[in-house]
Nucleic acid binder design. Sequence first.
DNA 1: GCCCTATTTCGATAAATCTAGAATTAAGTC
DNA 2: GACTTAATTCTAGATTTATCGAAATAGGGC
Lengths: 111, 111
Amino acid sequence: MTGRVEQAAERLKALGHPLRLSILRRLVQGPEAGTPAGELQTRLDIPASTLSHHLATLADAGLVLVAREGTTLRYRADYGTLRALTEYLWQDCCAGGAADDPQPSPCCRRD
Amino acid sequence: MTGRVEQAAERLKALGHPLRLSILRRLVQGPEAGTPAGELQTRLDIPASTLSHHLATLADAGLVLVAREGTTLRYRADYGTLRALTEYLWQDCCAGGAADDPQPSPCCRRD
DNA sequence: GCCCTATTTCGATAAATCTAGAATTAAGTC
DNA sequence: GACTTAATTCTAGATTTATCGAAATAGGGC
């Protein structure tokens, strides 16, 4: 019985670490099929166990997906969750909270 | 010399707590002039010291502003910061990261 | 000045998080 | 089976966070 606020908070918390935010950015910029953990480790230059810990945090929060390909694990961003989180943040925290005051999402505004 | 990623992470982390996210939502829904800390305390039914701690966290992150009015302190959301954070999250994590990359993000696909 | 209310700061404790080396699992190859 | 590579899980120590009662501060009134 995890409420909407609790779930959003968990996801925001998962994003609230420089390393994890950097990881996510790399995944977003990487190929759609996913980025191998080893490649992330090389790029970020951190111990494998540390990286694995952060990847698990992101995965537990539902922000990234993982798929095995032989001996390598490919991680990729879960855009559905990310989009939902961003829109939640926008609507409930930036746009006055009221659902009857629909403001366009940041992605749709071209100013 | 706090980088962009670090600052965003700090703010996301500040939002990554159910109580703080609830506080912010109340501020957003409350009057523009701000909501007294005491009112938040009554509504959320938590000790004043606990509330004060979380308000300080939000204020340190630049997500809320405070103004004294007699003996009461009125807190209000800082929409500038909130909007910047949401847009950062959208552009860098949902929309492929590169600002010079005009490709539509997977987030915007309505399928 | 002395109160009263509103809120923060202090202090202490419990719990969670971060980091990373060492050991382990998983999958493939010979 | 033995070996190699990829990545995770185990384990432990250091740091940070969360909670909240008690004490302190700030700003009025009387």
